[in-house]
């Protein structure tokens, strides 16, 4: 086992811990913060299942973004759907016996990686060219895109240009799963790719990537339109009723 293998092992254990604990704490915070009032953006579904379906459409199809801006929607779908396929393709690195579905998704994972980078570049171009979006973009917005492009591009590079020993990479990650650190190939493209992924995992709970849990907790999307039928009362607000005259 090389020093490099150890460093990356520590990096990935730390990144995973930060991602999981950080996200869990954030989700707990969202879940335990009360919603004092019913504020679904109307018209809103009248039933719980309807509201769940609304959130599902938002997550799966970016429904509101579709209404809003077709270009951003196209690039956002390219990026997110591409990323999803690429991630599925990568599941094989964590399975000794690869599931059939993961085997089937392999070729699409490559297209996914391309789509992801294309979508990111489209979003980035808008951020630079469109003056309204340029105005609202800060350094962190550009850096986040740079990081994601780096991940996608370094991954595609390993597929098409400078290959790495993926058998060894797989052995390394299977090893990490059982706390048995194997040898990691030292190809620069791989190290860049994995390093960038670890950085992404670390910044996830502390950045705008919180939109991922956020969309599920957005009251304007997940609340049911039933305010007249059911009294919705936050615990902190309830004691106020004791002060009223009637």
């Amino acid at each position: 086992m090389s020093t490099l293998s150890l460093i990356y092992a520590i990096l990935f254990y730390a990144a995973t811990a930060l991602l999981v604990v950080g996200l869990a704490l954030r989700i707990k915070l969202y879940a335990t913060t009360p919603t004092p009032l019913k504020i679904p953006t109307m018209p809103a579904p009248l039933t719980k299942s309807g509201a769940a379906f609304r959130v599902f459409r938002e997550v799966a199809f970016f429904e509101s973004l579709f209404k809003s801006n077709r270009w951003i929607w196209i690039f956002a779908v390219l990026f997110h759907a591409g990323l999803a396929l690429a991630l599925l393709r990568h599941v094989r690195y964590f399975q000794a016996d690869v599931w059939l579905i993961i085997e089937l998704v392999q070729p699409f994972g490559i297209y996914g990686g391309m789509a992801m980078v294309a979508g990111l570049l489209g979003l980035w171009a808008r951020r630079i060219v469109q003056e309204r979006i340029r105005y609202i973009s800060g350094p962190s917005d550009h850096l986040m895109l740079a990081l994601l492009v780096l991940i996608g591009a370094s991954g595609l590079n390993m597929k098409f240009l400078t290959r790495t020993d993926i058998i060894e990479v797989k052995a390394y990650f299977l090893g990490l799963l059982r706390f048995d650190i194997q040898n990691l190939p030292s190809d620069p493209a791989l190290l860049v790719h994995l390093g960038a992924v670890a950085v992404l995992m670390i910044v996830f709970p502390f950045s705008k990537l919180l939109h991922v849990p956020g969309v599920f907790f957005s009251p304007s999307r997940n609340q049911v339109d039933d305010a007249r039928d059911k009294r919705h009362l936050a615990p902190w607000a309830a004691p106020m009723d004791a002060n009223r005259e009637a």
């Binding site: 801006n69 973009s137 800060g138 705008k208 957005s218 936050a234």
Partner: peptide, 18 residues
């Protein structure tokens, strides 16, 4: 601490420009 919407909304914006 009192309003989930505020917390979620302040965290979630990705500056997409929509």
């Amino acid at each position: 601490d009192k309003n989930r919407a505020l917390r979620v909304y302040l965290d979630s914006c990705v500056k997409c420009g929509a």
